Computed example of a mutant assay.
Amino acid sequence: MTTGGSDDSRLTKNQRREAAREKAKQLREEQRKKDIRNRVILIGSLSVVVIAIIVGITLVITSTLKPAGPGPLNMASDGIQIGQDFKAVPTPALAAGEDPVPTVNDPASGVIDIRMYVDYLCPFCGQFEATNNEQIGELVQSGAATVEIHPLTILDRSSLGTKYSTRAGNAAACVANYSPDQFWAFNGLLFSNQPAESTEGLDNDTLKDLVSQAGATATDDIDACIDDKTFWSWLEDATSRALKGPLPNSDEAAVTGTPTVLVNGQKYSGALDDADAFSSFVVQVAGEAYSTATPTPTPTPAG
């Protein structure tokens, strides 16, 4: 007994040929549908890849061509100058894309001009600060010197992706903008609480706490300025200008490392951890300025 199916042996030769053609037609149709589905899947996958590439390129172009940001108040030179009693010298904010305006110092005034280019993650900057903060502070407080501080963002790569140099520099710029007379105190706190390289650095909440410890006013505005990254773009531009040079009021071509410390335009190249060496350099440079600025008395003709 035969069970199930039809017996092809009962079909004629023409019927078997027609059945084979129909079967082949069905197979071709199924293959055609399968090919269409595969093409759709392939095109969809390629579209996703192309879109991802376009987005990536757009992000790169956007980050590269991002517009310059405005600078903070009191940092028109790309730095903030601190004078007697730690009062900041007021200056207008740089407009977006505007060139900095170098601070004008008169050597004949007898006031020593100290200028420092620093990165708040730089351990050598921290070493110089720990060694010389007190004596520089005494000179500034008494009016014998001014100090101009330029935050830079060279070491962002050393903070595990958190861009600590930029975050700390931005916080300093926020203080300069909203509470400039507390900048010196905040600058000191950034260094006395300086994190080590190859760490994430201080988080933003800790930076805000240091702002309060410095006695800053307008802390709500400063906190928002820190969170909003208000001066990140300006910091990037200021760092680029310092690294490209030339440094104003100096023979130095550019910043080649931090700290770069200039006294009346002359670069200090002594030991960073030797307070006496730096003090001697300041006295020497100040003496040169005095002797140059003081005219030699004209002899009185004999009567």
Results as ranks from 00 to 15, higher is better:
residue 6 S to K: 13
residue 10 R to N: 08
residue 10 R to T: 12
residue 11 L to Y: 14
residue 13 K to F: 00
residue 16 R to F: 04
residue 20 A to W: 05
residue 24 A to E: 15
residue 25 K to L: 00
residue 25 K to P: 02
residue 26 Q to D: 03
residue 30 E to H: 11
residue 34 K to W: 12
residue 41 I to E: 01
residue 48 V to E: 03
residue 51 I to Q: 06
residue 60 V to E: 03
residue 63 S to D: 03
residue 67 P to M: 13
residue 68 A to P: 10
residue 73 L to A: 15
residue 80 I to W: 12
residue 86 F to Y: 14
residue 87 K to N: 04
residue 94 L to I: 01
residue 97 G to K: 14
residue 97 G to N: 07
residue 100 P to R: 12
residue 100 P to K: 15
residue 103 T to S: 10
residue 108 A to H: 02
residue 109 S to E: 06
residue 116 M to A: 15
residue 122 C to N: 03
residue 124 F to C: 02
residue 136 I to H: 05
residue 138 E to P: 02
residue 154 I to L: 15
residue 154 I to C: 02
residue 157 R to L: 01
residue 158 S to Y: 05
residue 159 S to N: 00
residue 166 T to K: 07
residue 167 R to Q: 15
residue 168 A to R: 00
residue 170 N to T: 07
residue 173 A to T: 09
residue 175 V to Q: 08
residue 180 P to V: 10
residue 182 Q to R: 14
residue 183 F to G: 00
residue 186 F to T: 06
residue 190 L to V: 14
residue 192 S to F: 10
residue 200 E to V: 08
residue 203 D to K: 12
residue 204 N to D: 13
residue 210 L to T: 05
residue 218 A to K: 10
residue 218 A to I: 01
residue 223 D to F: 14
residue 230 T to F: 01
residue 230 T to W: 04
residue 231 F to C: 05
residue 232 W to G: 07
residue 232 W to C: 01
residue 233 S to D: 06
residue 234 W to L: 03
residue 239 T to Q: 04
residue 242 A to V: 10
residue 245 G to R: 07
residue 247 L to V: 08
residue 249 N to P: 02
residue 251 D to L: 00
residue 255 V to S: 05
residue 263 V to H: 02
residue 265 G to R: 00
residue 270 G to H: 11
residue 272 L to M: 11
residue 273 D to N: 14
residue 283 V to T: 07
residue 289 A to F: 03
residue 289 A to W: 02
residue 294 T to R: 15
residue 297 P to L: 05
residue 303 G to P: 09
